[in-house]
Design a protein around this nucleic acid. Structure first.
Ligand SMILES: [Mn+2]
Ligand SMILES: [Mn+2]
Ligand SMILES: [Zn+2]
Ligand SMILES: [Zn+2]
Lengths: 178, 178
DNA sequence: TTGATAATGAAAACCATTATCAATATACAC
DNA sequence: GTGTATATTGATAATGGTTTTCATTATCAA
């Protein structure tokens, strides 16, 4: 007989009750989607998945419940480049407390990596410790984005730059930096 | 007689011309605002400032020019938590190529810090070098956000939790985590 | 089971950003 | 300088993710 608290499969039920919030079918469906997906999803992603198990659910409830979960500290919300926010569980057994990405500013490609290199863990461990003390700030999550040119895009700038040439005498061909 | 290229006060003029873009009054005004402010601004911030020196300017031109500058690699654009994008020069003598912030998930306060603790610069340098090689990715800018509780908000949760108590028998007082 | 009230969802509102398009400014040829 | 091709502008409308509104429904302690 499994325990239904702490880190068990229904750890989040206690969170709702403990906060004085009612445990409803839409809310169960939403947390369930986040728990099973175990990666960052947009509100619409969550809506589409939850809709399958509970077709009556509305997009409004998705947004409302997500905000609630963020306030409770159960979900981490962060902005992505495409104008839609992303949400992921940041509490419970499957919690992910960091997001590290390489973002190509030319094609928009996002490389979401978790296989940190040697120096990286040390870097953030030390940095977070220093910042916590210096600013008396309790760090719970982090988002790290390196912006630049992906493999393909940086090659294209040198290899296919001639494609950008224009015949008009009024438009001098754009250099490879434009 | 000062040079008007490279890192001089009008370094960005050559960028426009070199890319085949015309040098217009609205464009000058926009770059000038970014150059003088030397911190990240929203499109509206830029509009309001540029409007003072060139009242005929339209918000549309602000967005269009910013996108152009981003494509040219002169401006770095990143998402802030409030739904408005921020822009800052990332080329020229005043370029800023990184943004490090502490974001309070309770009150929304943002601490924008640049006074890096010891070792931080070196570790980022090494980390970026490692990532560049591993993913063959040319890193140009970075955004680092630590999310959590600011000084005030983490104190309030313990000190004033009694304020959250509700008299209704149906609403058990929210614990300090809600 | 009942009743107070928390939660829901359809619809409308909101708001930053984009697309349209007719008018204008720029820069090159002459 | 003048003329001409076209890049640029800005008012306006449209877009799309997110919030607000509000009448209806579901939850849960008693
Ligand atoms: Mn991620
Ligand atoms: Mn900054
Ligand atoms: Zn790319
Ligand atoms: Zn705070």
């Amino acid at each position: 007989m499994p325990r239904r608290n702490g880190t068990g499969p229904f750890w989040w039920r206690g969170r709702f009750k403990g906060c004085g919030y009612r445990l409803t079918i839409p809310r169960k469906a939403i947390v369930d989607v986040l728990d099973k997906a175990n990666k960052h999803l947009s509100a619409e992603d969550i809506y589409l998945s939850a809709h399958k198990v509970y077709p009556a659910i509305g997009l409004t409830t998705i947004y409302r419940t997500l905000e609630l979960l963020v306030q409770m500290g159960v979900v981490f919300k962060f902005a992505s480049g495409d104008g839609r926010a992303r949400y992921q569980l940041s509490a419970g057994p499957k919690a992910v407390k960091y997001h590290h990405q390489l973002v190509c500013t030319t094609c928009g490609r996002v490389i979401d990596y978790a296989d940190f290199i040697d120096k990286e863990k040390e870097l953030f461990s030390q940095t977070e410790k220093g910042l916590s003390e210096k600013y008396n700030f309790k760090i719970l999550n982090r988002l790290v984005r390196f912006y630049g040119l992906c493999d393909e895009c940086s090659q294209q700038r040198t290899v296919t730059s001639h494609k950008l040439q224009v015949t008009s005498h009024q438009s001098p061909e754009r250099s490879k930096d434009c």
